[in-house]
């Protein structure tokens, strides 16, 4: 799906406090620092409250990004029902949608109808809790899925960026969570091939 134009438009949304901006920042910085690309992040900017719907739009391009708002989302991630409803509007025909199926239950029935969209339902919160005993790592699992689906940067550069962004003592755990996301997405892709 890493489109031929070399441009990725992604949106990550959840509720304040889930740490979704970090995943976006890691990708953006991997693109900027290690691949010489342009990346722009426009977070929702509102009253600074926990628990409210929040999103960040990430655009990665090989050229300077002019209009910084996403209009044709190639990747859309939602880990809260409220933010899914509020922000799914700009998804493109080829968008890969990742939702936490425990948290986003109510989807429009026709969301895939007549499109090339793909829907990944992965209970990232539950998995993070089970595997790492830490909810916050759900966003790293999501980052792994995003990475595998979009291939917007190389995995090597993604890891470099993680190293830069997270404290050294948490690096291994974060990488393990990202790796888990990558594996999940890979197996999903294989299933699709089989089907």
């Amino acid at each position: 799906m890493n489109n031929t134009s070399g441009r990725l438009e992604a949106r990550f949304c959840g509720v304040g406090g889930q740490g979704i901006v970090l995943g976006s920042t890691i990708l953006a910085e991997a693109a900027i620092f290690y691949e010489g690309k342009y990346a722009s992040q426009s977070p929702t900017y509102g009253s600074q409250v926990r628990g409210g719907p929040t999103k960040v739009d990430l655009i990665v391009d090989t050229q300077e990004i002019l209009y910084p708002k996403a209009t044709h989302l190639n990747f859309f991630l939602a880990i809260a029902q409220s933010s899914f409803k509020k922000y799914f509007c700009d998804i493109a025909d080829d968008c890969t949608i990742l939702i936490d199926e425990n948290l986003v239950i109510d989807l429009p029935e026709d969301i895939l109808v007549g499109t090339h969209r793909k829907l990944y339902k992965i209970p990232v919160m539950e998995m993070a809790k089970q595997e790492f005993n830490n909810n916050i790592l759900a966003n790293m699992i999501c980052l792994g899925v995003t990475q595998e689906v979009t291939q917007v940067v190389s995995t090597e550069n993604l890891l470099k960026s993680i190293q830069k962004s997270v404290p050294a003592k948490h690096y291994d755990k974060n990488v393990a969570a990202v790796q888990m996301g990558i594996e999940l997405a890979r197996s999903r892709k294989q299933q699709e091939l089989v089907v």
């Binding site: 920042t25 953006a28 900027i32 690309k37 990346a39 722009s40 992040q41 426009s42 900017y45 910084p68």
Partner: peptide, 10 residues
Amino acid sequence: DETLAQMSGR
């Protein structure tokens, strides 16, 4: 303006 101020980029 708000757009320039809040967006991060290269």
